[in-house]
């Protein structure tokens, strides 16, 4: 196995970077609204399928297709909040969970209607591979790591230096204090859904050239991102990144033994880790 360690680790970091983005997208919404959005994986799927459809079927240039895909995910996320969640303001957390599960089912059905049930893929942005140990990782996959890192950096800058970002953080910390400062918690929540969906959409666009994407693939991506978020500790963005990377790396190492069980075993390991540290790996 030793000669493949580097390869598994590199692949794990690649996939983990995408899970980390999805975990962050969960966290953006949860921090501002207190809602755990179980439709988050569908935003991954919508971002990916919109991009793939526009580029492959409609022959739109790749950069424009990516922008349109991420924008569509953001708009769908915003619409989900405005139509599905905002009217239920003040409901119990269980009610919100049921609403987001319903949204997930609806979005999946709509996606199968619009794009069909066949998988879509996107061309790799960079051709060729890099030799790591006894194996090779393609250059496109490695490109995912800095792109995900850049998205995270942009997210940090957004929350630290923009007015909307500061307002969203204020809502996350103290909603009453935020209202007293003239901030509309509804608007901040809407912004968090749009941003969270856009982030998930970026994750979808990045993973499609590697794994392909179809109407029902978002749920598993969402579960992996969610696992990363709870492993790192909901509400802790750094924890979400570490948690997402850990899920990716664990999953890839399990592939060595059986790729068929990678999803199940990865989640079992997450559960075991959470039994040891119920509030996340970075909890004190």
């Amino acid at each position: 196995m030793g000669q493949y360690l580097g390869l598994f680790f590199a692949n794990g970091v690649v996939i983990g970077s995408i899970y980390a983005l999805i975990a962050l997208s969960f966290n953006v919404i949860y921090s501002t609204t207190g809602i755990i959005n179980f439709a988050q994986g569908e935003f991954v799927m919508i971002g990916a399928l919109t991009t793939a459809w526009l580029h492959v079927a409609m022959h739109l240039a790749m950069p424009l297709a990516i922008l349109a895909g991420v924008f569509t995910a953001a708009v769908v996320g915003l619409a989900c909040y405005l139509v599905g969640l905002r009217p239920a303001k003040g409901a119990s957390p269980v009610t919100y969970i049921i609403i987001t599960i319903a949204i997930s089912i609806i979005l999946k059905s709509l996606a199968s209607f619009v794009w069909g049930t066949d998988p879509y893929t996107l061309p790799k942005l960079v051709q060729g591979g890099v030799r790591i140990g006894a194996g090779e990782v393609d250059k496109h996959s490695l490109l995912v790591i800095p792109v995900a890192g850049m998205c995270m950096l942009l997210l940090v800058l957004f929350f630290r230096y923009t007015r909307v970002g500061l307002n969203m953080r204020a809502c996350a910390e103290n909603k009453e204090g935020a209202r007293l400062c003239g901030i509309s918690v509804n608007n901040a929540s809407a912004a968090s859904f749009a941003l969270g969906a856009a982030l998930a959409g970026v994750g979808g666009v990045m993973i499609t050239p590697i794994l392909s994407m179809q109407f029902d693939a978002g749920m598993m991506m969402g579960i992996k991102g969610f696992s990363g978020a709870i492993l790192g500790g909901f509400g802790n963005p750094i924890g979400c990144v570490i948690g997402g990377l850990m899920v990716g790396v664990i999953e890839q190492f399990i592939c060595y033994f059986s790729s068929g069980y990678k999803d199940i075993l990865a989640l079992v390991i997450v559960v075991v880790l959470l039994l040891l540290r119920p509030r996340g790996i970075l909890s004190r």
Binding site: A170, G177, C181
Partner: peptide
């Protein structure tokens, strides 16, 4: 009702809203 994880400067900036 402060924002405890935000800095003094950030708290004041939010007050500008």
């Amino acid at each position: 009702a402060l924002f405890p994880a935000m800095t003094i400067l950030e708290n004041l900036k939010v007050g500008l809203n």
